[in-house]
Simulated assay, not measured.
Amino acid sequence: MLASTTLSALVVEKYLTLARADGGVDNAFSLELEGMQALVVEIEHAWQTIVQVCYGPT
């Protein structure tokens, strides 16, 4: 998922659950809140590695 961000992905889809212990069809591959927060931070870091700042005319 992070690699797709460095390849210019604009949208990342990931399921969120409040508690895996509650059960459910997609809880096995859903992230809990802490995992989602970490994913957002890591995606932001990955995005910053490819963004180039250009000052002046191009």
Results as ranks from 00 to 15, higher is better:
42 E>I: 04
9 A>S: 15
47 W>N: 00
30 S>E: 00
24 G>K: 07
8 S>N: 11
51 V>N: 03
15 Y>M: 08
57 P>C: 11
30 S>F: 02
28 A>V: 03
19 A>F: 05
28 A>L: 06
2 L>C: 13
12 V>G: 05
43 I>L: 15
24 G>H: 09
57 P>D: 13
29 F>Q: 10
57 P>W: 12
32 E>I: 05
52 Q>D: 00
25 V>H: 11
16 L>N: 10
31 L>P: 00
56 G>D: 08
40 V>Y: 10
49 T>F: 03
29 F>S: 06
48 Q>R: 14
3 A>D: 10
40 V>S: 06
55 Y>V: 02
19 A>I: 05
46 A>W: 01
52 Q>I: 01
26 D>W: 05
12 V>A: 05
22 D>F: 07
44 E>F: 06
39 L>V: 03
6 T>I: 08
1 M>A: 09
3 A>M: 08
21 A>T: 13
12 V>Y: 00
38 A>V: 06
54 C>E: 02
6 T>F: 09
54 C>A: 03
10 L>I: 02
19 A>G: 14
35 G>F: 04
25 V>M: 11
55 Y>H: 04
20 R>F: 08
58 T>A: 10
53 V>N: 03
39 L>P: 00
19 A>M: 09
49 T>K: 13
5 T>C: 10
49 T>N: 11
47 W>F: 13
4 S>R: 15
38 A>N: 06
28 A>G: 01
21 A>Q: 13
16 L>G: 12
55 Y>N: 01
9 A>I: 04
56 G>T: 13
36 M>V: 07
19 A>W: 12
30 S>I: 01
53 V>W: 07
38 A>R: 15
50 I>T: 06
52 Q>G: 00
51 V>K: 07
9 A>N: 07
29 F>N: 02
3 A>F: 12
7 L>D: 09
33 L>T: 15
36 M>W: 09
29 F>V: 04
3 A>Y: 11
5 T>P: 00
13 E>N: 04
20 R>P: 04
21 A>S: 10
34 E>W: 04
56 G>A: 06
17 T>Q: 09
41 V>Y: 08
7 L>I: 11
6 T>Q: 15
23 G>S: 09
48 Q>M: 08
20 R>V: 06
20 R>D: 11
54 C>V: 06
15 Y>P: 03
7 L>V: 15
9 A>P: 01
39 L>F: 09
3 A>W: 15
57 P>T: 14
45 H>M: 13
20 R>Y: 07
45 H>D: 13
45 H>I: 09
16 L>F: 14
21 A>N: 15
56 G>C: 14
51 V>H: 05
38 A>H: 07
